[in-house]
């Protein structure tokens, strides 16, 4: 066990966990931030996507000991009122089915638009390719990303 001070959603948070613990489980089990989801644990599905210094990152393979000063943003901290352009587009297009993968999709999409505000269709598909949606909402995901890019 070791103590870490993490910068999560603009707040300093202290946790006492094993150094090998992935951030995913620190968020979910220790900090009550359950919006970040577990899907595979091996960086294959994207359900656990967070922003690490603004970059889309798989939190299931990111150990707490590797974070240091880097800033973590989770779905809960993407916007204060749930009104990030990507979130708004997600509601407008009514993307979700079961909804489980969607936090990860939104985090990947918002990081994409941060670095590339006007992605082409190909760039959207490629950027979103790491996020599995078992319900098959891919077409609506693309549409929502495009809508958010325009706004």
């Amino acid at each position: 066990m070791a103590t870490y001070t993490l910068n999560i959603n603009g707040k300093k948070q202290e946790v006492d966990v094993d150094p090998s613990t992935p951030i995913l489980w620190v968020l979910r089990d220790h900090l009550n931030l359950v919006g970040t989801k577990y899907g595979c644990g091996i960086a294959q599905c994207g359900a656990c996507t967070i922003h690490l210094d603004g970059k889309a990152t798989r939190s299931c393979v990111l150990t707490v000991s590797s974070i240091g000063e880097q800033k973590i943003t989770t779905i809960e901290g993407l916007s204060e009122k749930g009104d990030h352009p990507v979130q708004k587009a997600w509601l407008e297009v009514d993307v979700p089915q079961c909804g489980y993968c969607q936090a990860g999709q939104i985090m990947t999409a918002s990081a994409l638009l941060e670095t590339n505000p006007t992605p082409t269709d190909e760039e959207i598909e490629t950027a979103m390719n790491g996020n599995i949606c078992r319900c098959g909402t891919y077409l609506r995901i693309r549409k929502a990303v495009k809508m958010a890019a325009k706004s």
Binding site: L33, T36, I75, W90, Q102
Partner: peptide, 11 residues
């Protein structure tokens, strides 16, 4: 729209 839509999009 999905009644749980906002909760899904905000985690």
């Amino acid at each position: 729209k999905n009644v749980d839509g906002e909760k899904i999009a905000t985690g």
